[in-house]
Design a protein around this nucleic acid. Structure first.
Lengths: 205, 205
DNA sequence: TTGTGTATATTCACTGGTTAGTATACATGA
DNA sequence: TCATGTATACTAACCAGTGAATATACACAA
């Protein structure tokens, strides 16, 4: 595709990186195309050569977050010790940790959907929906492998807790809600496991 | 206070009503002060007589949604038949019903928090946080009356499912997620009830 | 009853700044 | 020469907030 791409980092990548920093921190409509171009070190006209509109740029910003985000969840899950409920709960604990970083500002996909709620067909919203569906499907497949009877239903319940914790923590700025969500997820998964084996964590208090 | 207030509906009320319609449908930054004034049938200068800034108007918009919203949740709960889990689940079913109306656009409090996430101290966000805390406290008191051991933790888990369903349904435009969240809430509450009495709904598939 | 002062409420017209997007031209390598 | 990429300079609209004047209703004095 790109015939040229001589200088160190391609212009398009630099623009997306700048868009990511600005849109995630400040929101979509609060950030001008001029600001993104300035941060990327290009003129606005160059930006419009690579992206046909601001909406297009917003979609590219979210598309760039899709795979890294999913990979992080999978990593947190696979590196955790213990039972299936404990491994899912570990995702929530890692999320609480990152939410304590001062630059944390919620879930970019959900915030964009909230800000553009009056434009249901917006390409950025479609990308966000696809992202969440991928996460849901990964959970469902994981649960199905463990012999859980209604894996899709359970996957959706975990997703609801996850996105709920994004929303609540964004509002209250209290990441402990994510740990509470993780405990709820633990309880729901344990109750759905086929054979109630030995380990019984069920974090009380 | 108001010495005058001659004409039918006070100007301030009309402005808040116009702001409610526009901000809820389109978001905060997508709606200009001029648009709110025009919809209210006053000039922008009159609007700025009643509200010192747009931020002030946004706060008033959310403050106007606080009590009606809470009253609706309490009504759905108290009018529902059956056990405690069933009555909470009824809230989620009613929510799914309203989410199927074409004008539904998520939770105004959460959407505002998402859009203004770069301004953590914003008055509108404080009002949203207080609103959610009131709901949480109402749930906690309700659970405490039923003898549930950790009523605050359970209340927060239900709140996480509720706000999660707002976020997920806004993204996917599929209100059935709210019913799934209601089933999860049902399961969590039933598991926390002190004496496992007779009625055992536990909506399986 | 009538006049007048005063706080409340509203309007018109404006400002300074920002915004998404573009017309045009220039550069550079194959 | 020709496609790709970048820059300067511009437009037309929009936006939050304001200055100055005016209208209305009521309290109180004459």
């Amino acid at each position: 595709m790109t015939v040229m791409a001589r200088p160190g980092i391609p212009t398009r990548e630099r623009i997306i990186s700048a868009a990511n920093a600005l849109f995630y921190n400040n929101g979509i409509r609060a950030v001008s195309v001029d600001a993104v171009a300035a941060k990327a070190g290009v003129t606005k006209r160059t930006l419009y050569y690579h992206f046909k509109s601001k909406d297009d740029l917003v979609a590219a910003y979210l598309a760039g977050r899709d795979q890294p985000n999913l990979a992080l969840f999978r990593k947190w899950f696979s590196e955790a010790q213990g039972s299936l409920p404990a491994k899912v709960e570990a995702i929530f604990r890692h999320l609480a940790r990152s939410a304590r970083h001062p630059k944390w500002n919620g879930c970019g996909f959900l915030r964009t959907a909230a800000e553009l709620a009056n434009l249901p067909g917006h390409p950025a919203i479609k990308i966000g929906a696809a992202h969440k569906k991928k996460f849901e499907e990964w959970l469902r497949a994981t649960f199905a492998e463990e012999g859980i009877v209604e894996p899709l239903r359970l996957a959706r319940q975990i997703l609801l807790l996850l996105d709920g914790s994004f929303a609540v923590v964004l509002l209250h700025r209290d990441p402990s809600y994510m740990e509470t969500a993780g405990e709820a997820a633990h309880a729901l998964i344990e109750a759905a496991l086929p054979v109630r084996a030995s380990r019984r964590v069920r974090a009380g208090r």
